[in-house]
């Protein structure tokens, strides 16, 4: 029995360390920054000024050593992306850009409804018709469509960011990060749902 127990505990130990090794922590700070960039695009605020890239050195040159055998060599040093110094969340994929652009276009129609309180932000990163009595009758079914299309895009966005960063399991954390940042970046007077599900006005 004892002989059996030792390999067993070894196995468990191995298993435990393996769990630790493969666990990649969610980059919370980077996710907030990424969320803010997208949200500012959607809300239409000017993004914060990115620090200027230092001008790159000469990237190609004409050489003519060993003439006449070698007349000229055009040397290309293609533009190299700066290496990522810190953990970052990539949000620069065509799908994310497309989803952001779609939400940005829709936001122009949605903004007055946020302002009137007809539509509010839920605590799971979606939006909801909060009080449809604030919406003129003829617009009530179009606002329902807008809200469902927006929620479809938002869900796709959260899944896409997780997938683009090769961590599909981060989707729910990305969703809750966004949920907070949508509210934090919202204009004063817009409505949001707190974690208990009660509507509050910012």
């Amino acid at each position: 029995m004892r002989a059996l127990r030792i390999p067993m505990s070894l196995f468990l130990l191995l298993f435990a360390t393996a769990c630790v090794t493969i666990n990649v922590y969610f980059p919370a700070e980077a996710a907030e920054k990424a969320a803010d960039r997208i949200i500012m695009d959607v809300y239409g605020s000017p993004p914060p000024q990115a620090p200027q890239q230092p001008p790159a050195g000469p990237q190609s040159q004409i050489e003519a050593p060993g003439f006449p055998y070698r007349a000229v060599a055009v040397v290309l040093d293609w533009l190299v992306p700066p290496a990522h110094a810190e953990a970052d969340l990539s949000v620069n994929t065509p799908a994310i850009r497309q989803l952001t652009a779609s939400m940005e276009a829709r936001h122009r129609t949605l903004a007055p409804y946020y302002a009137s309180g007809a539509v509010g932000m839920t605590h799971d990163g979606q939006i909801e018709v909060r009080d449809q009595k604030l919406v003129p009758l003829a617009e009530r079914n179009s606002i329902r469509s807008l809200v469902s299309e927006e929620n479809r895009d938002r869900s796709a966005l959260y899944a896409e960011i997780a997938r683009a960063n090769n961590h599909p399991e981060w989707e729910s954390e990305i969703r809750s990060t966004f949920a907070r940042r949508w509210v934090d970046n919202a204009r004063a007077g817009w409505w949001y749902m707190d974690s208990a599900g009660a509507w509050k006005q910012k």
Binding site: R70, A71, L79, P81
Partner: peptide
Amino acid sequence: IPPRLDVVGYADRVDWNKL
């Protein structure tokens, strides 16, 4: 044979969007 012209690339990692 001259006039010989080579185009040589140095960088092995390039930002796709900039390219």
